[in-house]
């Protein structure tokens, strides 16, 4: 059942993607609105499908690749909708939505049937650890694209070139501010994610820290963002430096989330 609702939401996301891409070409406010509303519809239905799955399965559905990608996309869509209420970042939708759609299509290629939960995952820590980690990652996912956009716009201004579509880009200050917001929201989330993960590891594997590849990479990620946040607050790291660090941080998240699972392996092999 939940899988059908999931497909409906995917259809809305695809529809939204189409309109955001169209917006890039025609630059009409109405086109963007259609994209925005269908994104909102897609997100709501996606949320319902996730809740459905939770009820059907009886556990938080973030236990395999399909479920994680789906939840990750849900968090990204949610955070993007949240940001859109405060900032003029339509152009960002033109990048985020296609990636979101690809992510969901990719998710649907993994087995999606509900299976009994492996004993090692039966824990109260499952929802806390996964939700915090994924919401944090989703926030940094968005900041990754914000940073790329920042670097492009910044380079254009510095080199005194007129960029195509440059009238549609948010200002440097707005982009930097969004990055700062992402930092200050995302960092607590991944911190809680890592701490709860460690506590859970203490119960499940008998030791709080095992230097498992997943643990190591998430620590690296955490350190990157910690340095960034610290330097922002003390010596005023802004603009390009922030953007570069955000990109490095997100690449490290990618390795933690996908690289370790798909290529390296380790204790944390469910997702």
């Amino acid at each position: 059942m939940s899988i059908y609702i999931f497909y409906i939401s995917l259809a809305f996301y695809l529809f939204s993607t189409l309109f955001y891409l169209l917006y890039l070409v025609v630059y009409r406010k109405g086109v963007e609105r259609v994209g925005y509303y269908s994104l909102f519809a897609g997100f709501s239905i996606h949320l319902i499908s996730t809740l459905f799955r939770y009820i059907q399965a009886g556990y938080t559905p973030i236990t395999n690749i399909y479920e994680s990608l789906s939840f990750f996309a849900l968090a990204i869509a949610g955070f993007f909708l949240y940001l859109k209420r405060f900032y003029k970042i339509e152009i960002l939708g033109c990048i985020i939505l296609p990636v979101l759609s690809i992510m969901l299509i990719w998710a649907s290629t993994f087995p999606a049937e509900i299976r009994p939960l492996p004993p090692v995952l039966k824990s109260y820590w499952l929802p806390i650890h996964t939700i915090f980690s994924f919401v944090g990652n989703a926030i940094f996912f968005i900041s990754f694209f914000v940073s790329i956009l920042y670097l492009v716009v910044e380079r254009g201004i510095k080199k005194k070139r007129v960029l195509p579509f440059s009238g549609r880009f948010p200002s440097l200050e707005t982009l930097d501010l969004i990055n700062y917001r992402c930092m200050s929201y995302g960092f607590p989330f991944i911190t809680v994610g890592i701490i709860t993960g460690s506590i859970w590891a203490g119960f499940a594997w008998g030791s709080y820290w095992n230097w498992d590849p997943k643990e190591t990479w998430s620590l690296i990620t955490w350190i990157v963002y910690a340095i960034l946040l610290h330097n922002r607050l003390t010596i005023g790291w802004r603009g390009r430096k922030t953007a570069y660090m955000m990109i490095i941080g997100f690449l490290s998240i990618l390795i933690t989330f996908l690289g370790v699972n798909l290529f390296i392996g380790g204790l944390h092999s469910y997702v």
């Binding site: 716009v153 201004i157 440059s166 880009f169 948010p170 200002s171 440097l172 200050e173 707005t174």
Partner: peptide
């Protein structure tokens, strides 16, 4: 215009 590109 340029100021706005930088500062909004």
């Amino acid at each position: 215009e340029l100021s706005k590109k930088i500062f909004g």
